[in-house]
Design a protein around this nucleic acid. Structure first.
Lengths: 169, 169
DNA sequence: AATATATACGATAATATATGTCGTATATAG
DNA sequence: CTATATACGACATATATTATCGTATATATT
């Protein structure tokens, strides 16, 4: 079954969280602990997911006490294909449609005699296009799902620091 | 990464094989051994894949010596979504988009606090639509890939039986 | 300086899924 | 009666995902 990895879901939840927070014009920093607590996600994986998003320049990080993350990229500029490539690797329905990761021609043991390569290539191309046409900014259309919950509810007062202040360091 | 199962690939290859054979108007029966030999696929899995296609009424089977399979359904009537549902189960990017397999509301442990459910639901719906718009008859557009290879090359003469004859039983 | 908090990240363990194999039963042609 | 082929459950292996652990580094506060 075509199913996303959990880390991909965690990443989307984290982006949703930070994006919504940004939209409130209360530009607070978000910590890994805040997200894992708020949504009940495993802390370690949430932290690593955020580090991954940071390395891809989706978010900005600041170290130490009162450190944390905030959304850096405009989600309008990120396609779901981009995001998936970051979280799970590039889209490739079958081994032979991903030459970059498998430069050797013989990566698929059936390649020589396979006769559906062209079909698969065409199909894969269209799927990538489909995913590339979806912007992560679509997440913003679903802010209403929050049902009025206050995202800052379980944030300790000590963390109420603006991005401007965080940027000083 | 969004990747198809091997059994799905085997199934596509098998359908391609039988469809192309049918198109030559030499309505031969195809055995599991013929396909596994011709494409170098593992016999047992190929056989099970064909049994699965048979149970879903995609192909017809006849038992015993000179037995085998032939394509029954018109591939124009089968969407890639249908085929995937058969081979890998229905499309569901995340747990909560597949209520039929998970009727209990709490199947996803994060469901209660998750706030991207609507986004995921929308995304999943569009993906299913995308897959439903693809017909398996597209395989036929790629018959030329065969590069002139003769599909009956490695079929023993004893198997040169027409469908009509196979239907007698 | 010492402490608490937070990111960074490699290594490894636990779990789940996918893939492949084996054994046996049944059907049919010759 | 034998060879061939489908049918299918049970099991073994391999791979990938998911989670955890340990340690290092950075920074604000006291």
């Amino acid at each position: 079954m075509i199913r996303l990895n959990r880390t991909t879901e965690y990443g989307l939840i984290a982006l949703w969280h930070m994006s919504r927070k940004k939209s409130t014009h209360v530009n607070l920093l978000t910590t890994a602990r805040e997200i894992s607590d708020h949504y009940g996600l495993p802390f370690e994986i949430t932290a690593k997911t955020l580090q991954r998003l940071k390395n891809a320049d989706f978010i900005h990080s600041s170290h130490g006490a009162k450190g944390g993350y905030y959304l850096k990229k405009n989600l309008k500029d990120v396609s779901f294909a981009d995001f998936l490539s970051l979280m799970e690797g590039g889209q490739s329905l079958v081994i032979c449609t991903f030459p970059r990761e498998h430069p050797e021609d013989g990566s698929c043991e059936y390649r020589d005699r396979c006769e559906i390569k062209s079909f698969m290539s065409s199909l894969n191309q269209r799927m990538v296009q489909f995913l590339a046409n979806i912007r992560l900014s679509e997440l913003e259309e679903f802010y209403s799902n929050n049902n009025g919950k206050d995202l800052s509810a379980n944030i300790p007062v000590s963390l109420l620091v603006s991005q401007k202040e965080a940027l000083k360091t």
